[in-house]
Design a protein around this nucleic acid. Structure first.
Lengths: 248, 248
DNA sequence: CGGGGGGTTGATCTCCTTCAATCAACGTGG
DNA sequence: CCACGTTGATTGAAGGAGATCAACCCCCCG
């Protein structure tokens, strides 16, 4: 996904690329108008930290463009990514004073921020927002639980295949390409970020990617550009229950 | 926690033991009355399966008494617990037709079930319910993410210590005992269930419990009865960030 | 008495980590 | 333009934490 050049100094909500998927998806014109009053945009370069865990946080936000990661760290440096934030995903928790995780921009990142106090007030008056947020939170909980299975029980090879499958699937839906043909995409993550996501070391990530390449499951150009010649083959490697189902 | 003998054929919501923590916590008398109309109780013996993943589910529920586990399984039998359901926890997802996980009663279990359709209809009219459900879901998401760190990055010993600490803490608050003295509790889980929760084998669980006992971190009577002579010592073993904070 | 469920312990194996060397791409300053 | 440092990635060798396979124990119950 090419980085775009929008400045986002101000964008009309109606024209927003994540209008129908974000926390504001159910809002009517009137409600959007009130959101416009409390929103502002912030942009971060790849690698920049958006928030440190424990920091005071006086906004919540939607990811508009780019990718961010949610990570937790132990004192000795061991790090686990606990969420990958894609466009339309929500950041922050209403009712909470401080950030619970580190948020880092993985790519160039634009967020639509809402001042927390007014947003919380608005949530009480606007069921459309809480309803959508509940739905999104339930989805995230499902994703987190799927990831728990991966972290707790999958082999390194299965972990890598699962991550590639998720990214491939997401990219395929974005591009509206049929999932039957070759799937081509760029990894939005470094090997280290992948390792943090998968609960592995970056060396193991590198080795397993090489192994999948050697076995013809994927093709690599450069470090990041990936071709999946046969999606079913990749799915077989994930260890997931496929039983002929469609991978949504 | 002793298994109680309530039949729960019908209990007045006002007298319910989880009245102030469950999904109905914020409901007023009027709203409770409407909930009474769509609720019914079900009880399961330890070991019984409440729902199989994929099964049609025409209710949602609150755990009233006992413990249930939420598990995900791979075809080859590898199993990962993705949630431990304690009294007041919510089961099921409004808007979803089929169960996403296996739900198994770990102890004798009583649930307060709501017929799904009327419950969903009521949610739309009753912000008190959705608000509370959102709050509970956000808490569960945090718990799931904490568990991701455990699964992805902690050693077997740290995993065991973390689980013991969580159970000890919960029991201490239930008993309103000061957390400073000795903490004594019974494990509500078999070694196998612990293994499924921690992403380990039951042999490793057994070995690590023996090691913690050998090192004096815990004392064991029988297989399940545990004494923690020094909670700080146990916390040190979890690998978590303590920096003098109170363990809530 | 036999059997089964839950648990412990031992021996061995293996997958992943750790430590380390090397490489390619890139920018930067002399 | 080249030397140099940096960053991200690959690959190798060695070691170890946890898995696997297996024997055995304890206790309860029919």
């Amino acid at each position: 996904m090419a980085v775009q050049d929008h400045t986002f100094s101000h964008v009309d909500c109606e024209a927003c690329p994540i209008r129908h998927r974000a926390v504001c998806a159910r809002c009517d014109a009137d409600e959007l108008e009130r959101l416009e009053e409390i929103k502002y945009y912030r942009t971060f370069e790849a690698g920049q930290t958006v928030i440190w865990s424990g920091d005071r946080m006086d906004f919540v936000a939607s990811v508009v463009e780019g990718i961010a990661s949610l990570t937790q760290a132990m004192e000795d440096g061991r790090t686990q990514m606990v969420g990958l934030l894609l466009p339309s995903d929500f950041v922050g928790r209403p009712g909470r004073e401080t950030a619970a995780y580190n948020v880092v921009a993985t790519t160039r990142l634009t967020m639509c921020c809402f001042r927390k106090k007014p947003f919380e007030a608005m949530m009480l008056r606007t069921p459309h927002i809480s309803q959508r947020l509940l739905e999104m939170t339930l989805d995230e909980l499902d994703a987190a639980r799927e990831w728990m299975l991966l972290l707790g029980r999958k082999t390194a090879r299965e972990k890598i295949a699962s991550l590639l499958a998720i990214i491939a699937r997401r990219d395929a839906t974005l591009k509206l390409a049929s999932a039957t043909g070759q799937i081509v995409f760029d990894l939005p993550l470094t090997r280290e970020a992948m390792a943090d996501y998968l609960g592995l070391t970056l060396e193991t990530v590198s080795r397993q990617i090489s192994a999948l390449k050697r076995d013809g499951v994927i093709q690599l150009e450069g470090k990041r550009h990936i071709t999946v010649p046969d999606m079913d083959r990749l799915m077989d490697e994930t260890g997931d229950d496929t039983d002929g189902g469609v991978y949504i």
